[in-house]
Design a protein around this nucleic acid. Sequence first.
DNA 1: CTACTGCATGGGT
DNA 2: CACCCATGCAGTA
Length: 916
Amino acid sequence: MSSSSSANIGCFNTDCKETKPERSRKGWRLRNGEFAGLCDRCGSAYEEGRYCETFHSDAAGWRSCESCGKRVHCGCIVSFHVVALLDAGGVECMACANKNFIMAPNPVWPSPLFLHLPLPERLKDLSVKNWNQFTGAGPSAVAGQWHHVPNLWNTATAQSELHPKIPYEIDRSNGIDKLISAECPSATAMVKTKSEDPSERVASSSLKFVPPERFANGSSGDCGPVETKKGVTAEPGKNTPAAALNYESHPSVNMSVQSTLKDDTSSLHVGFGLPYALPNVANGPSKVSAPQSQHQTPPAITKPFMAVPHNAVESSSETQVRNGRPRGDTRGRHQLLPRYWPRITDQELQQISGDSNSVITPLFEKMLSASDAGRIGRLVLPKKCAEAYFPAISQPEGLPLKVQDARGKEWVFQFRFWPNNNSRMYVLEGVTPCIQSMQLQAGDTVTFSRIDPEGKLVMGFRKASNVPSSDQETQTPKSGNGFPKNGEINSADPSVWSKVDKSGYIAKEILGAKASIPNKRKSSTLGSKSKRLRIENEDLIELKITWEEAQELLRSPINHDPSVVTIEGHEFEEFGEAPILGKPTIFTTNQVGVKIQWVQCEDCSKWRKLPFNVLLWSRWTCSNNSWDPKRSTCSSPQELTTEQLEDLLSSKSTAAPKKTKAAKQVTEAVEASKGLDTLADLAILGEGDALPSSSQATTKHPRHQPGCSCIVCIQPPSGKGPKHKQTCTCNVCLTVKRRFRTLMMRREKRQSEKEAETAHKKEQQVQQSPKPEPEDDQPLSSNTSNSSPNPKHPLVSETVDEDPNRKRPSSSPLKGQIDLNIQPEREDEPSPASDSCSMRLIRDANERDLRGQRLSSCASDRDPIIDQIEPGGGGVAGQRLDGVPCGSGYLDGDMELPVPLSMSHVSISDGLDPRH
DNA sequence: CTACTGCATGGGT
DNA sequence: CACCCATGCAGTA
């Protein structure tokens, strides 16, 4: 920033002697991505590669290329991009670097995002990144291979030692120079003392820099982590003394709060390797500059930490004996899978650190599986993460690892592994108390970070998203739908964080952090492993949003104005008929007091005015504007002025969530298949309210559905109870199944039913905008969707099986419509045909339904666990899903099993889940 | 019988 | 196809 500001005045080169230099040459790349503007003289100097030499030949940072010996400056922004830092230490001019297979120069500059952070943060961040670069980045031209990098024990230390300098050194216009200059020597020194045993301890050398205070026993030099002064092994007989990290006298792995340790960080905490050490980080999947990556760098592991024995008893031979395979085998696979990349933002980390001198380095994160969150208390650690960031262990018993949670609580887990095939499976044992204290459940994510200079391991977490806020201890503000607002979290609102205790609190960021997280990131973070998880976490986000949007689309059925009921402070809109969906429009009242409706053409984006009571297709274009021929083409100008449009839009945004109004104003709407599909998906996959992550987030348990009684399914701590059985015949299940089937059928038949549809459409077109949209857009008459003529069946009339009207012939002209309320053919049974996926969907839907039910019926504190639902029998009205007679005055009797859709007509002022 | 432990299994990548 | 890892499950306490 500082640099860019100066860039606006004459030559960018502050040493330029030109009195009134005129910038005409493009210089080096600035941190903001632009290029420094230089006058001719400086520009040519730069282009000729003698800029540094010319303008600051006496500055610090001059080094010699390891390959050609050429003197190169290594410590200013100008030279930053033309010098390659070697893993083994030293630097190379780009010429040699390229020859030696270095394709990319030093890591890219921080992303623009980074630059937007307050200076202190940037500095910190930058310092970390730079440091990382220095510590581990850079292929070794000499060896022709990537050299080791992160050494838990030393890098952290080294880093910590350096950080304190950064603040003042970098706080200058050319801070970069200083920063780098300051670091270079250290880094170099470190590398130069490299281990003598390149085969197995490529970079362990730096261990020598581990300050004595960190490894009190002095064995760090050779053994890495070690005993600390107290030297108490976690479990006598199980842990080798050397391996025990003696976290205070905590003999067992049982976790307990150890507040007293808070400050005793010098020797009790394990340091963790730097996660971002890959030299070619710029080429990584998640670039530092990724627009929305929160300027995180993927925790690339240049070399598994485990390659370096960390304790005296560890030896490669032993390791091999135990595992049947040297751990070093993993050397080739340096990077963590994307799903383990920490998504925690720097700011969040900053918050955790509490004091400004701490630097948080996100290490990795892991979404809890059912077993992780179960009562077994074992958290399976991704192998690479464990090996990269946790101390190396040679004994299956592992060692106790002290981890601090975001609140400063300290826990001691047993970090160990199990021989597995020829590999290892790392687990953290004894995590139950911690998991429970954080109220985590399957699907939630735990993050591991390291705080420097303390070198503490910090465990944060992020709820899967829809967890009721009350369940969370976080103070993160949540949006109405239960999602914490990413912006709020990341906005670095100190006030929020400052409330948290000293150690800060890792924000439970929204899953997916809304749109701020690139899709790629989302998917990668969540992992490609579990589709279920992805659906819940990623797509759900989409769905969630869509769902909310869908609410806006809900219109009361024609001739049925909704009535608003308030239950426990939440407004519920009650329709006499099933609401219908339509294209979102904006309603306003003109000067004359006449209500009008604005709709945006999907082709030209122009807004057109329509009568307020018009039904619209989900896809509406100017050509459909039969009300205003003059504006029935995209070429015709927009009626609204910019200002008016702004007002309009702003009003929309403010009123948007309040669908109630709209519902009252709009008489009807039409839904198109797109929306239909979306809705269908929504209905099935998840209402805005998140699916209980505990149940579905779980991932690969193959037999969860039926009456699985495995520990995972039984898991109560995080799970919310048993689930609906696949064979369950309760109303919810039946309804959902039917619906699901219906949806499926509808799609299939859509095609064949066009005719009927067309015919039907004609009728409607009399009063609606003609939109002969082929398969996708089908006119929806107000009542069509609901075959139930009985207005008393508010929403899901279909649930009433007895209702003959329900039996909609498959040929119904309404088929193509999105009416979720239609009563599918009553092929009752849980279509065995439905594959597991379908069933899952159904189950999910069930859960959602439940929630919806609860939401719409009576607010209850009970968890929407399907199993808690008492088989309501075929559509007994007025009965709660959970078996509790609901008597809620909400809907007249028949309202049972509110389909997901029912949720949408609920206008909730503060969240989808009123329960909380 | 329950809880725990440690390894086996197998789906997914 | 190898590896990862979520979960299963037998053996033990």
